[in-house]
Amino acid sequence: MKTVESLGSSLLASLEQTGRTFLLLLIIAYRIVQPPYNLYPIVRQIYFIGARSLGVIVISGVTIGMVLGLQFYNTLERFGSVDILGSAVALSVLRELGPVMTALMVVGRAGSAICAELGIMRISEQVDALECMAINPDKFLVAPKLLAGIISVPLLTCVFSVVAIFGGYFVGVVLFGVSEGSYLNGMIDAVVWSDVRLGLVKSLIFGLLVTLICCSKGFYIHLTKSGSLGAEGVSYVTTDAVVISSIAVLFSDFLIGAIL
């Protein structure tokens, strides 16, 4: 009886959180169009979410590109089709791996930090203080993070894809001696605008999802059980935020792939 009860209540709690998260999106959308407009907080958040993630994105991009180059080369060599190495690497990076890997990296590097920051601000009364200063915390705290996520993640994805293509180039052309022309021109012939567009749409949605989930988890910490646990509670919601947003990225990747 007890297990059924706790299962039911945790199901209700997660439904409630989903609802809260989407309501937060609506609130923010409404707040963003209201004056005053302040650009500097958004720049600051792009700096944090985007610019500071550049290093990790470049490193993981090169690595993924090299791994793809190696694996595709080994497979294609058996069929004597190493000429399509460039297009194989480019297509898999542009359509799938670029957006997904970038989003997961952003979750780990920036998403967890966003969630913990908002959680700590909530439990140390900083959010209340804002409200008492007649400053809207949704607009002041959450909106810049959300906008910065939507702007930064697609840009990071583009950087990731370019770097990964050249990682594959390094392995294929420099190490294994595939001709440069067949790698680059094969890629250029095979990739069309709709491939790039699919990756872009995915990364936009991932950027929104990741920042929204991480913000909502931290910002609404006081409405969950973890709210009364102080620092320990922040660690719980941060773990939750990372797990949930990673799963949301993978699942929505499948959904977008199926729809578009």
């Binding site: 610019a51 550049l54 583009c158 894809s161």
Partner: peptide, 10 residues
Amino acid sequence: IFVVIGILSF
């Protein structure tokens, strides 16, 4: 710089 790098990549 980050935004410029991103737009160039795009």
